[in-house]
Design a protein around this nucleic acid. Structure first.
Length: 885
RNA sequence: GGGAGCAUAGCUCAGUUGGUUUAGAGCAUCUGCCUUACAAGCAGAGGGUCCGCGGUUCGAACCCGUGUGCUCCCACCA
């Protein structure tokens, strides 16, 4: 069989993904095996997957595949999120480009466009998930606006309303004037900006030319001023009790009020109070019973109530007002000022505090069980130290959740109003009428449904339940079997939006936690540490990366440098490393195939009898024994790392096992001479090891491993579902001997290098050791690996040889080449100095009485051994030095 | 303003209850190799005041205090 020079991922990926799907390996149905349930954090249908998703999906696939190979009935549910505001904003923008104004469309017409959008981007996302190799159960694909899901959301709304946990009220909310909707507190992102603080003087109503100065960042809101507030203890203003002032430009007469809230030291010590446009002012207004004048429309333009600049955008109006205030002598001072401004997470526009009637969820009651579940450790957070405090703090200080959005894309609020504004909550219009009849004795009332939809997160919080129809068909078989989920993998940025709320919903509706473990991945940044963003153009395209490096390499690259919860500096370099790893494995396969071919041709020629079978096996006994133990040791290590969710470390461990232990050491140790056949027993063992290595790596790199598994020999199963064998016990002594062997080989090779011996030049090796027998099983490997054509033991120093000391043994290298004795001597002297310093430090420790008294016995014994070893080593070096002239 | 996390080789990070640590890995660097699986490779090597200071301890990268520098979260100071 002819194998390509390098591993070629493309065809392989396609072939195996199709095969896995056709075998329905990823499909799950409840059965007698334990369930391993993972629900994907549904990506928004606003666009394509970015590197953050890639990391997330990869982590989930690793966990799910490993569970599937470890006796679990693994079920990974894929899906997507309708992402109300973000998607609606994109659809509106798309329509605008097509020359269509959203307002010219009916709700139904608009939703048709939105669903088209969802189909398009949803399928792009699903395709990306598939290309990455994710083993999701496609039959279970769920969208947060699917019919049953829609029903679930409505059902929960009505239920919480009936329980008194949802209410409607006029509050100061965060207003996104570009999307024209309310936002929850969590959807507001604050950024530091440098703005200006304007000092304005308001004329006092005293009949004289007296003024009071205030400081503001928002001069365009003065038309909404309904008071000026000063601190009651501020002597500067004490005389103004009961006084009034006039708002500049519009001359509204407003009172001077007194409240502790005002900081006398800030600005001028006087605050203009604009209850309609500032949350603090709003609270002051409530307290002092002030009028509320709303001067800004829902689209961010000045309203009729502003009297001037009506219809102009608030930021345009600001500039004009400043100019006018200056011209008319009201603006007395401008200063630079840094402040924090809120921006809409979804549209990026400046958030406007605004009073409006919205729907809210009371959070205190729901938060309590969610807090307990995590604090008591029923749900385990990884890494715990980093996020437990954050989670706790938020839940302990949780505020009511504004859930209504003035949009069309989402679940429409099931509240119905009659012409007089009377309201009932019901699933359908018919039910609403019935309730109206009961409550108000009105038959067949004319009802209108609330125009608003619900916050996206009000649907996502039901995700772990409703993907199994746990809300719409409570207690169904699947929900009982798959809920609670095993592990949730998500970004730390949505701990409040999503994670905490899923726990709340789970505790409320299933009386059970939604998942046992939460694994937080860090944020993916570029290699300069910047966030990935469209503006910077530093976010690579996933499919391009897969085309360039292969899906396995992408998965490797993103996992290899990705510790849990820490940000990951994404660098294509590591994908290259992944691609190289693919090749390394591929080439090991080629080597084995070569051996196989040679073997079969030998068998054909019936010359295998001439192979000194027994002696070969003895020669390779040690290599086989060693690798078998090494393999089992690493399998146990990987097990333990996976249990602790240390996925990156587990990958590195497997990588090193394959590259270093298997390829660099083991394969070289058993490699037959030039054009020699390999022993059949050794060959078969090696194939088995290779298989096990592929199995171990499979969750991380599914395609290359499945391909190689099938190329190694004819298989009647697939690696994808091959169950892990239990880990065998490890003979540590063999491993120790293996380490010694490696150490000796490296030391001699180093010495060869330093003495500029060419790889092809052979040496004669003499070993001076107290335990010859420990070399009997490894001497043939040793001589081959250091290219010695002769190996023998000696009891005395060999003259004119290079001397290498490892532990207590000495190795003499004889060569025809002229030796650079000066360098040899130098190296030995350096080593001697080092050993002496070390010995001194150990001696100091051992002569410390308190150390000897307090240290644990095994520590003490170790120090004694260190001392003995160092002393022996020093003797060896000194003897060696004496042989060099 | 409040809170959390981080600081270890040029870079990205490991380092598990303080003692097999004379602090490891990968990448990068340097040296030598076109050795017939692999130059996307092989064989080696160099590289660190474990952020500064103080303390606890027989013993500190690890525990405590403090300073500095980053990062993130929360919060209504015009």
């Amino acid at each position: 069989m002819e194998l390509t020079k390098n591993f070629e991922p493309k065809a392989v990926e396609d072939k195996w993904y199709k095969h896995w799907l056709s075998q329905r390996y990823f499909n799950s149905k409840p059965n007698s095996r334990p369930a391993f349930t993972v629900v994907i954090p549904p990506p928004n249908v606003t666009g394509v997957l970015h590197m953050g998703h890639t990391l997330n999906e990869t982590v989930q696939d690793i966990l799910v595949r490993r569970a599937r190979m470890s006796g679990y009935n693994a079920c990974w549910v894929p899906g997507s999120d309708h992402a109300s505001i973000a998607t609606e904003a994109k659809v509106v923008a798309m329509l605008k480009e097509m020359g269509i104004d959203k307002n010219s469309l009916s709700r139904e017409e608009f939703l048709k466009y939105a669903f088209e959008w969802k189909e398009k981007y949803g399928s792009i996302i699903y395709n990306q998930i598939a290309r990455l190799g994710c083993s999701v159960d496609w039959d279970r694909t769920t969208f947060t606006m699917d019919d049953h899901y829609y029903q679930a959301v409505i059902k929960v709304f009505i239920d919480l309303y009936n329980k008194g946990l949802i209410y409607r009220g006029a509050r100061m909310i965060n207003w996104d004037s570009s999307a024209k909707t309310a936002l929850s507190d969590e959807e507001v992102e604050y950024k530091d900006i440098t703005g200006k603080l304007y000092h304005l003087r308001y004329k006092l109503d005293t009949g004289n030319e007296e003024y009071i100065s205030i400081a503001t960042q928002r001069p365009e809101t003065i038309m909404g001023d309904t008071a000026i507030c000063v601190n009651p203890n501020d002597e500067r203003y004490a005389h103004l009790k009961g006084a009034h002032a006039f708002v500049p430009l519009i001359n509204r007469r407003i009172p001077i009020i007194f409240d502790d809230y005002v900081d006398a030291a800030f600005g001028t010590g006087a605050l203009k109070v604009t209850p309609a446009h500032d949350i603090n002012d709003y609270n002051l207004g409530l307290k002092h019973n002030l009028e509320v004048v709303d001067t800004i429309n829902e689209d961010g333009t000045m309203s009729a109530a502003a009297q001037i600049y009506v219809g102009e955008d608030r930021f345009v109006a600001r500039k004009k007002i400043i100019k006018e205030l200056l011209e008319k002598g009201f603006l007395t001072k401008e200063e630079e000022y840094t402040t924090r401004l809120g921006y809409s997470q979804r549209t990026g526009s400046v958030v406007e505090p605004r009073i409006s009637t919205q729907w809210f969820v009371k959070m205190k009651e729901l938060a309590e069980p969610a807090l307990t579940a995590v604090v008591d450790g029923e749900i385990k957070i990884h890494p715990v130290d980093k996020f437990l405090a954050t989670y706790k703090y938020w839940l302990e200080n949780v505020k009511d959740w504004c859930i209504s959005r003035q949009l069309w894309w989402g679940q429409q609020i099931p509240a119905w109003y009659d012409e007089e504004g009377r309201m009932v909550v019901a699933e359908t219009e018919i039910e609403a009428k019935e309730i109206f009849n009961i409550q108000y004795s009105i038959l067949n009332a004319q009802l209108k449904q609330d125009a608003d939809v619900l916050d996206t997160w009000f649907s996502s919080w039901l995700w772990p339940m409703e993907v199994f129809k746990g809300i719409t068909e409570p207690g169904n078989e699947e929900a009982k079997y798959y809920y609670p989920g095993s592990v949730l993998v998500t970004g730390q940025d949505i701990i409040f939006f999503w994670v905490a709320r899923m726990v709340m919903a789970g505790m409320e509706y299933e009386k059970q936690i939604p998942f046992k473990d939460v694994y937080f991945t860090g944020m993916v940044r570029d290699k300069l540490g910047r966030k990935m963003s469209k503006q910077l153009g530093n976010s690579p395209d996933l499919l391009e990366l897969i085309d360039k490096y292969g899906a396995d390499a992408v998965r490797f690259g993103i996992m290899v440098s990705s510790p849990a919860g820490n940000d990951l500096m994404f660098d294509e370099n590591s994908l290259e490393q992944g691609r190289n790893f693919n090749n390394k494995i591929w080439n090991a396969l080629k080597l084995l195939k070569m051996w196989q071919d040679r073997q079969s041709s030998d068998v054909n020629r019936e010359t295998s009898a001439s192979t000194p079978h027994d002696s070969l096996l003895t020669t390779h006994d040690f290599a086989i024994d060693w690798f078998e133990n090494r393999l089992n040791k690493v399998k146990a290590e990987v097990d333990s790392l996976m249990k602790q969710f240390r996925l990156s470390e587990a990958l590195k461990t497997i990588y090193s096992l394959i590259w270093d232990d298997f390829c660099s050491w083991y394969l070289e140790w058993i490699k037959p001479g030039f054009e020699q056949p390999v022993d059949a027993g050794v060959y078969n063992k090696t194939i088995n090891y290779f298989e096990e290595l592929m199995q171990l790596l499979h969750p991380y790199m599914p395609f290359v491993t499945e391909e190689i598994y099938h190329l190694l020999k004819t298989q009647n199963d697939d690696l994808c579902v091959k169950q892990f064998a239990s880990v065998k016990t490890v003979d540590e002594e063999v491993l120790v001997q293996g380490e010694l062997l490696k150490q000796v080989i490296s030391a001699i090779r180093d010495s060869r290098n330093k003495n500029q011996l060419k790889p092809k030049e052979t040496i004669k090796l003499y070993i001076e050791t107290a335990s010859k027998e420990s070399y009997s099983s490894i001497e043939s490997i040793l001589s081959k690996q250091v290219n010695a054509d002769e190996l023998s033991f000696t009891n005395e120093a060999i003259a004119n040889a290079i001397i290498v000391a490892v532990e207590k043994d000495k190795f003499y290298i004889k060569t025809d080449k002229e030796l650079d004795t000066a360098t040899l001597k130098d190296d030995l002297l350096k080593d001697l100095l080092h050993q002496k310093e070390f010995l001194a430090s150990v001696k100091t420790k051992l002569s410390n009485e308190r150390f000897v008294q307090n240290a644990k016995p095994e520590i003490l014994a170790m120090e004694q051994k260190k001392k003995a070893d160092a002393e022996a080593r020093i003797r060896t070096i000194e003897e060696s030095l004496s042989t060099i002239s």
